[in-house]
C-alpha cells in the first residue's frame, strides 16, 4: 500500500510536535538495525512566520521562529525529511529517520503503532488537560430577573 500525502503530512506533524525525549525513547529500538545516509545534516535556521490582518485580510510578516531541518536516506531506499520548530538537532535527525521508515509499508505499520499513535494520544491528553484548566475560567453570566420567583 502506498502512503498518501495526507498520511505523511499527519505523521510529520505528530513527529514535529512530539516531546523529544519521548520520541527518542519510543523509536530507539525500531531504528537501531537500519542504516541511514545523511543527505542534509540537521541544520538550524529561521522561518518567517506570516499572519493575516484580522485573520482574513492581507498577509504580513509577524517575525521569525527557529527551525531545524534534516534529510536522510534509509537502507530501505526511502528518503525522509524533517522540519521541526526549535533548535533540537537530535529531534530533527530522528524525525527524518522515522519519516523515511514510515514510508516503507511493513516498517510503517509497526512504527505507526509503536511511535506515532502513542505520541498522538499523549498530545491529545495534554491538550485535553489544558482545555479543562481553561474551561474552569469560563465566565457564566447571570441575568438578574426582578419580580419573579
Amino acid at each position: 500500500m502506498k502512503t498518501t500525502t495526507e498520511q505523511r503530512q499527519h505523521w510529520m506533524s505528530v513527529l514535529a510536535k512530539a516531546p523529544p525525549e519521548t520520541l527518542l525513547g519510543l523509536s530507539e529500538d525500531a531504528i537501531k538495525d537500519i542504516h541511514f545516509d545523511i543527505i542534509r545534516a540537521p541544520e538550524v535556521g529561521l522561518t518567517q512566520v506570516r499572519a493575516r490582518m484580522g485573520n482574513r485580510g492581507e498577509r504580513f510578516n509577524l517575525g521569525d521562529m527557529t527551525l531545524t531541518r534534516c534529510v536522510v536516506r534509509s537502507s530501505l531506499n526511502t528518503v525522509g525529511h524533517s522540519y521541526i520548530a526549535g533548535r533540537d538537532k537530535t529531534h530533527a535527525l530522528r524525525a527524518a529517520q522515522l519519516d523515511a521508515l514510515l514510508q516503507d509499508p511493513q516498517m510503517g505499520e509497526v512504527l505507526m503503532e509503536r511511535v506515532v499513535q502513542p505520541i498522538e494520544s499523549m498530545l491529545a491528553d495534554a491538550r485535553a488537560s489544558k482545555q479543562r484548566e481553561t474551561d474552569a475560567t469560563r465566565v457564566d453570566f447571570f441575568t438578574l430577573v426582578r419580580g419573579e420567583d
Binding site: G45, T47, R50, A51, T66, Q131
Partner: peptide
C-alpha cells in the same frame, strides 16, 4: 537572529483554529 539563515516563509497562521487559552470580548456579553 542575524547569524541564522532564513529557510522558509510560513503559510499564514490561522487564529480561528487557535487552541484558545483566553478569549474575551468587550462588545458582546
Amino acid at each position: 537572529r542575524t547569524t541564522l539563515n532564513r529557510f522558509y516563509s510560513s503559510e499564514p497562521i490561522d487564529t480561528d483554529a487557535m487552541e484558545v487559552e483566553r478569549r474575551i470580548s468587550a462588545t458582546y456579553k
